[in-house]
Computed example of a mutant assay.
Amino acid sequence: MSQKYEAERAVLMEDVKQVLKDAEALYKAAVDDGTKEGQALKEKLKAQLAKAQKQYAELEGSVVERTRQAAASTNDLVHEKPYHAIGIAAVVGLLLGAFLSRCGR
């Protein structure tokens, strides 16, 4: 399950990174028509792009750190109380099995 989450997270982060690259390419390709409005719009776009890139970097670092913390706390909990973890896994398996057997009918 955590591998699936990691794969989905990686795909999402890659998609966001690609959108930012595309926006940056669009900004660089934008033709400056020389008007004050055009220059102001281009400068605003440049500022928004820089802000989005900064927020992306912060978000990526935050997500990675939270994922590591969650994995470490789960690992610690399982090591501290292995019988609780086995019991919870058994109950979840039992409920999932009952649910799937009813859906299969």
Results as ranks from 00 to 15, higher is better:
L96E: 07
A29Y: 08
V19K: 11
S101Y: 14
K51D: 08
S101T: 08
Q18D: 06
E37I: 04
L59F: 14
R102T: 07
D32N: 14
A10R: 03
R68D: 14
L100M: 10
L45H: 08
H84P: 01
V19I: 12
M13A: 04
K17D: 11
Q48W: 07
I86Q: 05
V92H: 05
G104D: 11
S101H: 09
V19L: 13
V11M: 05
K54A: 03
R68G: 15
Q55E: 04
E43D: 06
A57M: 08
C103S: 09
K36G: 00
L49E: 03
E65M: 11
G93F: 00
L20I: 10
D32I: 15
E8A: 13
E6I: 06
S73D: 01
G93A: 12
A23S: 13
I86N: 03
A85R: 03
A85H: 04
D76H: 01
A90K: 11
L95T: 05
D15V: 08
V78W: 02
H84L: 10
K46M: 08
G61K: 01
A40V: 01
R102Y: 14
K54Y: 03
F99M: 06
D76G: 00
Q39E: 05
K21Y: 11
Q39I: 04
K21S: 10
K46Q: 13
V31F: 00
E24Y: 08
H84S: 04
P82Y: 00
A40Q: 04
N75A: 09
S2K: 10
E14G: 04
R9P: 00
A72L: 10
K17T: 10
E8K: 13
Y83W: 06
S101G: 01
K42G: 03
K81Q: 11
V64N: 10
N75P: 05
R102P: 01
Y83P: 00
K81R: 05
H79G: 07
Q48N: 12
G93W: 01
R105A: 10
K36R: 01
V11Q: 08
E58P: 01
